[in-house]
Design a protein around this nucleic acid. Sequence first.
DNA 1: GAGAACAAAATGGTTAACAATCAAGGTGCG
DNA 2: CGCACCTTGATTGTTAACCATTTTGTTCTC
Lengths: 220, 220
Amino acid sequence: MSATSAAEPVEPAGRADAVADRIRATILAGDFVPGQRLVEAELSDAFGASRGAVRAALLQLDHEGLVERVANRGARVRAVSVEEAVAITEVRMVVEGLCAAKAAENVTDADITELRDIGRRMQEAVRAGEIVVYSQLNTMLHDRVRELAGQPVATEVLSRLLARNVRHQFRLALRPGRPQVSLPEHLAIIDEICSRSPEGAERAARRHVASVIEALRDAT
Amino acid sequence: MSATSAAEPVEPAGRADAVADRIRATILAGDFVPGQRLVEAELSDAFGASRGAVRAALLQLDHEGLVERVANRGARVRAVSVEEAVAITEVRMVVEGLCAAKAAENVTDADITELRDIGRRMQEAVRAGEIVVYSQLNTMLHDRVRELAGQPVATEVLSRLLARNVRHQFRLALRPGRPQVSLPEHLAIIDEICSRSPEGAERAARRHVASVIEALRDAT
DNA sequence: GAGAACAAAATGGTTAACAATCAAGGTGCG
DNA sequence: CGCACCTTGATTGTTAACCATTTTGTTCTC
């Protein structure tokens, strides 16, 4: 039935983490659709793990925001409405702004050349129409900024927010014309960080994520 | 040995939630000190619950940020360093800023009279030196702002950040002279929200939390 | 004294059962 | 005919006993 390709004979997957990984992958692959019920017994059967492990996995995924658990009524794949995606991204906006500001404070000369290099490659990717490469550079840039910020709490919050939003984020990246909008915004963030201007970097980061919000709203 | 007062004969506490509540209370009461190991078997014994329940409770508390779980090494009460408290509060700063801004957008006339009333009572409390009352009004104000923001995601993030920081927050509130510093900041937030100025409200909220950060740093 | 083998403790995971809860569907009564 | 009530089935929540794995501390040897 479900997502398990017939060939692979249910690899070890002994641990709850592994089960969580597989459920997560199945959700992200779209094989579990939003709203779908996730019955412990079925998952336990499908993934060859005990109910306890499945339960732990569901707790973890609930904590990550990918599934929703109601008392005594089980877990279902969380359906993130556009409205909620906007709310998530609003929070993301201010936290990424913080990270950008702190990155501008901490950035070293070596980091600057690296960031500029990422920017150059982004330009090339957009010019060449290579969306996938651009998307990879995108996440690379955001990751690097977070790293430079040296703000573990912000990083943790962001990772959770992103996990909850992957689907919307994904659809957005594929929108035609989207790279042309976001590229200059990314370059602006890089510029401000490299000029070591915390305020400017925060503004640029917020402007960027604000444009993401707008695009989300238009998406419907 | 540990913190369990000898008298109480281990009341039911059947559910995992109940166990989590009791562990949380024990931590917040200071009877489990930061860094202390939380051994499943001991807790299970002390609270009269099964190991499974204790496990679930520890997972939940880990998710709340009160305990820290390392793979195969168990759970310990999370020790929040001043440095980490600062990081937490930095994130709090920008998210509370967002909430204040959105609150300024959504505020109704009725809300305005309510906010101003809270402000008036805060002034009275400070003048009368009633720290506890002021502290209650403080959380009431913050809660109300979050409510007005209509931003469930921000609320969720904030509640988790606060839970992780209770101890520092608590010590801070008792610092002599602290209310005199924070009162005008709170009043400024109220003013800006009531004038329906999102930018002003965000600035005021950030200024306030920034001053909390400074106080945290001084605390040592 | 340093390092390796070993033993104890604790977590992670499994199974099988049972209790509690919710959603439905059927029954009986007005 | 409609509505309240009860029964039933499915699923979650919890427990207990048990084993595997990992970590840690100790002891033994060189």
